[in-house]
């Protein structure tokens, strides 16, 4: 069972594994694998705790009710699965600043936190704007040959490459 404790698997094996997993998602649950709607639902749940039931009247939450659903459970599962995998290979580590970031911008956790927060904001906004993320559009949508997903996935990488290049080659 050495393969369970290996730190890295071939990207092709992992990709084929995710592809096969998507067959089961369609077959058993009639759902494409996706992640970003779960964050919107969670945001609605938190807002409901503060502002009460009138949150449910917002048109967006009428479309995507702030409740625990299949995809929400999937995202919880991702945290658990990655934890198990990291534990098995001994790479689990509480870490504020990733090494590539530290090399370019230093080890100050507050700076990394602030930048991650800003990045998360745009990603959360953009994922709902485009109606999906790297999983929902990038994998599940492209495999269905959906026009929206191919267009969005290409734009994800155009925006991502531009932002990363500016941060590391212009600012850094």
């Amino acid at each position: 069972m050495d393969w369970l404790t290996m730190a890295r698997w071939s990207p092709y094996m992992v990709g084929i594994g995710i592809g096969i997993l998507s067959w089961f998602a369609f077959l058993l649950s009639d759902k494409p694998i996706g992640c970003s709607t779960a964050y919107a639902r969670t945001s609605g749940m938190l807002e409901r705790l503060v502002r009460g039931n009138k949150v449910l009247e917002k048109p967006y939450y009428q479309k995507f009710a702030p409740v625990v659903d299949w995809e929400w459970m999937l995202v919880v599962g991702v945290v658990i699965g990655a934890f198990i995998s990291a534990q098995l290979s001994g790479v689990f580590q509480l870490l504020w600043v990733p090494s590539t970031w530290a090399t370019a911008f230093g080890t100050n956790p507050a700076l990394r936190w602030l930048v991650a927060l800003i990045g998360g904001f745009f990603m959360g906004l953009g994922a709902r704007w485009a109606g999906g993320c790297t999983s929902g559009h990038g994998i599940s949508g492209t495999l269905q040959l959906a026009v929206s997903s191919w267009l969005a996935a290409i734009c994800f990488f155009i925006g991502g490459i531009a932002a990363a290049m500016i941060i590391f080659h212009v600012i850094g």
């Binding site: 990045g119 953009g126 485009a130 290409i154 734009c155 932002a163």
Partner: peptide
């Protein structure tokens, strides 16, 4: 939306 997501993804 894709470009906004991408910018967030890169940041």
């Amino acid at each position: 939306g894709g470009l906004l997501f991408g910018i967030g993804f890169g940041i």
